[in-house]
Design a protein around this nucleic acid. Structure first.
Lengths: 299, 299
DNA sequence: TTGCATTACGGAGTTCGTAATCATC
DNA sequence: GATGATTACGAACTCCGTAATGCAA
């Protein structure tokens, strides 16, 4: 029993004619005729008298009408209830990001997003493998990571380019140099994140490409902030995402020293899991991120 | 939106699994899976989480459930209401019959019918053309007439054979005769119905077949009862359906005199109009009529 | 001729089935 | 291997359209 048939039945009753109902339902006249015959078969009873090209409700039809109205009303309620709640859920955005992106890049985007729409938004910051796990388990709707994701059937887009830069304290001897060379790196003290760090890994890879053997750090720290603080107090030089030190460089708390023969650049990726019902909020947030941070490059 | 989908949805919720719902709905598992996916598309929202081969209600599904139950309940109400009222209407039988049949044949059938089921029953008695008109206009459900109906798309069945017999008063000179001949008819007084009467018409036709010119009646009366009374008081002889004079002959109030060379026999017909929803009561009544009055001959 | 209901025929979509696949226990 | 969900493919039915018919004002 299709609810549409009951809707049509009510329309016919209210209009008093099949053609009138057809007009109001934006359907052809024959289609309405057939639908109502089908409805009559379903209920096993004549609902309309047909006389001289006119129709009129039978007693049974009269009985059915209020029931049909009640069903329709209850159905409309259900649609409304589902729509309302679904919208609420669809607008709740859960984002995961790796440390650098979550701490230095997304806050500005989130701030703008929350100003535009007051929808619920959560940001989870963790290392890349854990973030991708959360995406797989549907704990988060959207992930931001460095380095391309392999394997899984994820949708990825490059949203910005991140450059890893060398920085020192303003009082460091390198601070006045226009540039240094990779060969200089060994003669100075390196302050670095721990071995698991994605940043540290990519630096060593690039150095290896330049046939430079791994530089063992003078000091190992577990957060970027700790590295920055150590460098700032003149303990040595550090590497970090340009985004992570941008503000300190601008305020002359740190100095960026180009390494003439070393350019470490990597794309930042947004990653989503393809779902049957995608949240429109994801697209909104991604668009905003790309507008603020970089250009749209689909992969 | 098909109500069956909502029913299936509720079943899944109550059973906690698609396979369980499939069993209870006597459907295949894949069919239920697809139906529920279709329902999700209709509502534009995920209703179940699918995890490790198990399903669980989403928040939206939780919201939908009571609404679905309400719709189902209201729908069942509507079916029940229609069924109840329809049965009442379907059991109301309106019968039309020509005079002879209505006055002398049907009363016994109706009496038996009413004893079996106390359904409403109406009997309309009128001349054959008017009765057929009423059938055409759906004023009656079932007609009983003499003589085959031509033209219209009616369903007809012969239900009994009617013989037209000659009768006189027990004091009439013919009363002691074993039989008379058509040639005798002219020498006695005929008491007859008026010209429009079907009985009179058929007699004259039969006489014409015997090359006997029409006999003009000594007295013309408008009802069979009047003819019987006139004959009973010795005014002359009369013709009538055997059924109409059966009782008086049995009680020796009238005497049947065979006309050796004249056999007037005609079938009595039941006539119905083919309708989309036929009343079962019609068939019941017809069967009873044939059981009591004659044999079943379809035409 | 116009207005209304219906029938005839064809196409798209729904709803079922069986068979096969996949994941979990 | 057993259970539960899903996908693939095909058949029957529903539902809509256009075209044509029937009937009455």
């Amino acid at each position: 029993m299709n609810i549409k048939l009951l809707e049509l039945f009510c329309l016919i009753v209210e209009e008093g004619s099949i053609s009138g109902a057809a007009r109001r339902a934006y359907q052809s006249q024959p289609s309405v005729t057939k639908s109502i015959r089908y409805l009559e078969d379903e209920y096993g009873a004549l609902l309309f008298h047909r006389e001289k090209g006119q129709i009129s409700l039978t007693e049974v039809g009269h009985t059915l009408y209020p029931h049909a109205k009640a069903i329709l009303s209850e159905y409309k309620n259900s649609v409304e209830a589902v729509r309302y709640q679904n919208e609420k859920i669809q607008s709740q955005l859960k984002i995961g990001a790796s440390f650098t992106i979550g701490e230095y890049l997304l806050p500005s985007v989130i701030s703008k997003y929350k100003k535009q729409k007051d929808d619920q938004l959560q940001l989870f910051i963790n290392n890349t493998p854990r973030i991708l796990e959360m995406l797989e388990e549907n704990v988060i709707d959207l992930a931001f990571v460095e380095g391309e994701v392999t394997g899984e059937a994820f949708n990825q887009r490059a949203i910005a380019n991140d450059e890893i830069v060398l920085f020192v304290s303003p009082s460091d001897p390198w601070a006045d140099r226009t540039h240094i060379l990779t060969s200089d790196l060994k003669n100075h003290k390196l302050i670095s994140r721990e071995k698991d760090s994605g940043t540290r890994k990519i630096i060593q890879e690039h150095l290896a490409n330049h046939r430079i053997s791994p530089i063992s750090p003078y000091l190992e720290l577990s957060t970027t902030q700790a590295v920055k603080s150590a460098v700032q107090s003149g303990l040595g030089y550090g590497f970090a995402s340009r985004f992570a030190v941008e503000q300190e460089i601008k305020n002359h708390l740190l100095v960026h020293v180009p390494v003439a023969d070393l350019k470490i650049s990597r794309p930042l990726w947004s990653v989503t899991k393809p779902l049957r019902f995608e949240k429109p909020a994801i697209e909104t947030f991604l668009r905003m991120t790309k507008d603020m941070l970089g250009r749209d490059e689909r992969s």
